[in-house]
Design a protein around this nucleic acid. Structure first.
Lengths: 357, 357
DNA sequence: CTGTTAGCGCTTTCAC
DNA sequence: GTGAAAGCGCTAACAG
């Protein structure tokens, strides 16, 4: 029988709890496990990552020791040490309040979770300044990948990302010059397609209502698509109404804006978001404007509510969850050195429903 | 003039990029900054955290060097080193798809962000097994605090949390024996209050429809509140209908379940979620059941849609965002060693609207 | 199969 | 005002 050796490092340190905070956190270190198992830390480390290289008997003792101590490996230390990555992906979205971004997060999460990666989430509130601040702050955490919303950003943010060389996926739009990779669709084309479709249904005076497009590049691209389609079709472009604050759309805004839009005598209104469109459908009921007979209404995103409201809403379907999932898959591929597409186009589709004729 | 010293550590290492991955990440180290500024790392470190202890002139040189190199401090190393914390808070929620949890995340995020803490987000999908796995996995990242949803969990998860001593906030329910702290309200009392209120409006046959309550403790507590209220009031308890999968409520489920519930000839239905209730309102329109004349409908959560649907929905309002915010404030207080309440009760309110008489 | 050595990038003493 | 030494907890490489 061999003598149980005592692994000394840290043991002789009088106050190895110096990092302890007021809440009294105390995680056992690997040394403690090694000690109990009568081996060195190295063997414990191996038992955890290459169990096949450790004697079955030793392995058993180590597992017992882990159980006894309630040991949880310190991933921070692992990441710092040679060859370790943080196993962390950072996602920056405007707000998780918006269902489409929540979807994207779920998709992303489900792609990276099984691979042992965790999600660091930041909300920019549609603010570029905030995004810049978050990029810098999150980069300090050495994420192995960064997922961003949209394709336009400050030079500062862009430079930082490029210099550090982190894999980056920009989402929810396409561009030929991404920082690194893009996963999305053309908001311009999607809006063009919807506008064209509305015209095809016989609508002649199609209005467009956007959120605060100053803050939202995607909404701006949609507006451009609307304009271009009408121009190509030789139809009149009505005054474009922009809903003010806040950046995240609210149902009531759609209802509130309706009277103003109606001044232009449109026969259809294309909203930049289902949220506004649904609000407008409710508003139309109050004003006794029949939809779709007197007024066609179309939205964007195909939120769950679009297929439940009466009348059901014609809208552009975008696979929000898939955007996140693909972004996750691509960034993981990149991290592992596997080939990853620089551009993944996600198809949108027009959902024709009852709110248009 | 003094000679520029060369800080050696790491410089002589031939392959200090060994940790480099295929994507070619390369973050400059503090040593590089020190080098350029002609000082040691120690001075750079000080310049970053105690600038007042560094000569203004040196400070300037260091800032220039930081700018040139594009240096971003390594928070991982900082956390590992003495006195450092991870400045990370972990939140585990069932799903970010559900607006109430998204709200909580936003509230939490806004509470911890300004203090330099970042959010590690995990979705459990209403699964206890998944929650356990995530608790262990996230604990490896040494979060300074953990926010959990609900107050019931596996012994394993609970033990792990207690042993490690991380500050924990459980949310969305109350309990007299939290792991550490709780921020929420009594789902039982809230459902009791709504049931009582419905009875007060003259409803005699009140049905209750729940989601898959097997998975959702909060829904179960609401059911208990419904039962207790009816018992106290001497009113009949109808067969409780439970909607099957999936765990996260969908609008169509509310409509689909309606015929089955109607078999019991209720004069009011209390749904465990606004989502179902809104679906049911739509369904009622299709079946020409007039709400609230023939049937009262009540929901839970007061989602945005509740005040927009026609008729507007009577529901229980719960400040979802505030739950997250308070949870964040409390956990930060705890981390800093300031007094933090073990139990924070968040008030719910009955919102009487048009879907009930 | 297991141990020793040498860092990962930063920060906290304690000298100078 | 600045530097040197030591260590946070873990792991890759090389010995034995």
């Amino acid at each position: 029988m061999r003598r149980v050796k005592c692994y000394e490092t840290g043991m002789k340190k009088p106050n190895h709890h110096s990092a302890q905070d007021h809440s009294g956190q105390s995680f056992p270190r690997m040394a403690e496990v090694a000690n109990r198992a009568g081996v060195t830390v190295m063997t414990v480390s191996r038992a955890l990552r290459n169990p096949e290289k450790v004697a079955p008997n030793t392995l058993k003792k180590i597992h017992v020791a882990i159980e006894q101590t309630g040991y949880v490996p310190n991933a921070l230390a692992g990441a710092l040490s040679a060859g370790g990555g943080s196993r962390t992906i950072t996602a920056l979205i405007p707000t998780v309040q918006h269902a489409i971004f929540a979807d994207t997060i779920t998709g992303l999460s489900s792609a990276i979770g099984p691979e042992g990666y965790h999600l660091l989430l930041g909300e920019t509130g549609y603010s570029r300044t905030e995004e810049d601040a978050l990029i810098a702050a999150f980069l300090a955490r050495r994420p192995e990948g960064v997922i961003l919303t949209g394709v336009t950003r400050s030079t500062r943010g862009r430079d930082l990302l490029i210099r550090t060389g982190v894999p980056v996926v920009e989402t929810w739009e396409l561009t030929s010059s991404p920082i690194d990779m893009v996963v999305g669709y053309s908001n311009l084309k999607a809006a063009y397609a919807m506008t064209e479709w509305l015209a095809g249904r016989g609508y002649k005076r199609i209005a467009f209502v956007s959120g605060p497009s100053r803050l939202n590049e995607r909404a701006r691209r949609r507006e451009a698509g609307y304009r271009r389609a009408l121009k190509d079709l030789g139809l009149p472009i009505l005054d474009i109404i922009s809903i003010g604050a806040p950046a995240a759309p609210r149902l009531e805004d759609g209802a509130a804006i309706l009277p103003e839009v109606m001044l232009q005598k449109p026969d259809a209104i294309f909203f930049t978001s289902d949220i506004y469109a649904v609000g407008a459908i409710q508003g139309a009921k109050n004003f006794k404007i029949s939809v779709p007979e007197k007024l066609g209404i179309a939205g964007f995103h195909d939120l769950p509510i679009a297929s439940v409201i009466t009348p059901t809403l014609t809208t552009v379907h975008v696979p929000s969850r898939e955007i996140g999932y693909i972004a996750g898959r691509n960034i993981l591929a990149r991290i592992k050195g596997e080939p990853a597409p620089q551009l993944s186009a996600i198809p949108f589709t027009i959902k024709a429903r009852e709110s248009t004729r």
